[in-house]
Design a protein around this nucleic acid. Structure first.
Lengths: 259, 259
DNA sequence: TTTATAATGTTAAAATTATAACATTTCTAA
DNA sequence: TTAGAAATGTTATAATTTTAACATTATAAA
């Protein structure tokens, strides 16, 4: 149970989210406490670096906000391989045709892909992560299907068995899939159990399957295998992949695109 | 060639980009003009909707920024009744308890509500719109269930029959419902067909039903009726509602909270 | 240059906000 | 339940900001 004051502090922060900045008077009339109480509250919030006080009022200190954001978001993923990932994403976007239904997997490469989607002709996007959704929703011509479900904070993914049903209901032209591990022997794998059902259903649902993986993922095996390399029609990666995979794709008749 | 004043106006905006908000005194000492000059400048900037003035200082107006984003977002909804909506939202947030499962309806009032959610104890949020989702996903302690489905651009809502199944699967403690029309005879109504199934299922699913509607919605009937007033346990509105509704709630034993 | 106009500065009074000291209420633990 | 402590409210005074009226300075056109 929070003390009255702590409740007020929370409420003040909430109020600030609604209208920033705000005044001592406004707060004291809304909360129905004296201005001195509000001032004392603000002093505390200031000590906690949550707000800044100015003559007459208070403003959120949004240094914190920026720092927090999302653990996955871009801040983290941006750090490694992003030039390759961007190139891979841009290359992949050329596989989209007007009126296609496409399906986007999760992961940082897919966020670049979502950002690289063309917005000059109409098509339908099925996606699963908050990041992709935010980008896609800003597009003018795209229809969006977001199967939804339970939120997973580490990847910003939503999944549920009902979501799987929605994938089945909307067979896709092309699935753009990502992975954390690629191995000639162990196949294609990812790091989270909960992605399995969605990933396999995406692959089943789509006519054409395209795998987007930068070279750092090769010869790695992660906890959850979800497909064979031969399940894919196209693999888009960068020039640093091990040579044996070039030969393998050749013999297996997989189109290998290296950016 | 810009006039002196125009140059100052530009400089003030630049200063604000560096530190927002700032004070009249700070600006006048930096620009080496009198506080009256700064005040007159600020009046101009305010007329141009570039800044907001508060006692002692000035802050950038970033409504513009937001307005671009989504057609619905805040730009539109902000225009009418927003002080009441904010107060209603803040009031409603006090009905959430630790470990509750709550369910958030669509609409602008609900976006305010999503922003006003407490983040000092854990609970689960079920929601349907992109706006709510973006806010909720930034919270530290909230679990999120997003039923998902097909996207409706005008309200930023997602809905599907699979989404409805997810609601059924997660019975809520409290449903926070909004409406575009309230009428003693015709009941509670909204403006979009596609909201019907979700709204009725939300109401069925929740133990406690709270209706959030500002006074502008009273004595209006919209295209899609979805509930009776008596379906609700609590109605939160503002003091301008027609008197007859006060009596009605009294006789029908509906808790009526007016902010 | 002169003159009219606009822009800026100055000042004092009014309004608002801040502070500090003390009174009252509320909470907590014995 | 009650004493002590913490939180909140009240008040008067101090500090700051705002306003409005008017003085001064800069600017541009005749």
């Amino acid at each position: 149970m929070l003390s009255r004051q702590e409740k007020r502090l929370n409420r003040i922060i909430k109020m600030l989210h609604l209208s920033n900045p705000t005044t001592v008077n406004n707060l004291s009339s809304i909360m129905d406490v004296s201005h001195m109480t509000i001032r004392r509250d603000l002093e505390l919030l200031k000590e906690r670096k949550l707000v800044d006080i100015f003559h007459g009022g208070v403003i959120l200190n949004n240094e914190k906000k920026r720092a927090k954001q999302h653990p996955y978001s871009l801040s983290f993923a941006n750090k490694q391989m992003n030039p390759e990932k961007k190139l891979i994403a841009v290359k992949a976007s050329s596989y989209i045709k007007s009126n296609d239904i496409i399906i986007l997997d999760t992961g940082s490469t897919m966020e670049y892909f979502a950002r690289a989607l063309p917005d000059c002709f109409p098509f339908t996007v099925i996606c699963f992560t908050l990041n992709s959704l935010v980008h896609v929703s800003k597009m003018d011509q795209a229809e969006i299907i977001f199967p939804g479900g339970y939120f997973h904070e580490n990847t910003l993914m939503f999944e549920s068995k009902e979501g799987i049903e929605l994938i089945k209901e909307n067979p896709a032209d092309t699935a753009f899939i990502s992975a954390s591990g690629i191995s000639m022997e162990a196949g294609v794998s990812c790091s989270n159990d909960y992605e399995f059902a969605t990933k396999t259903e995406m692959i089943k649902s789509a006519d054409k399957k395209i795998l987007l993986v930068d070279s750092s993922k090769f010869n790695k095996v992660k906890s959850t295998p979800f497909a064979e390399l031969t399940d894919f029609d196209v693999i888009i990666s960068d020039k640093s992949i091990p040579k044996e995979y070039r030969d393998y794709c050749n013999t297996q008749n997989i189109e290998l695109i290296l950016v």
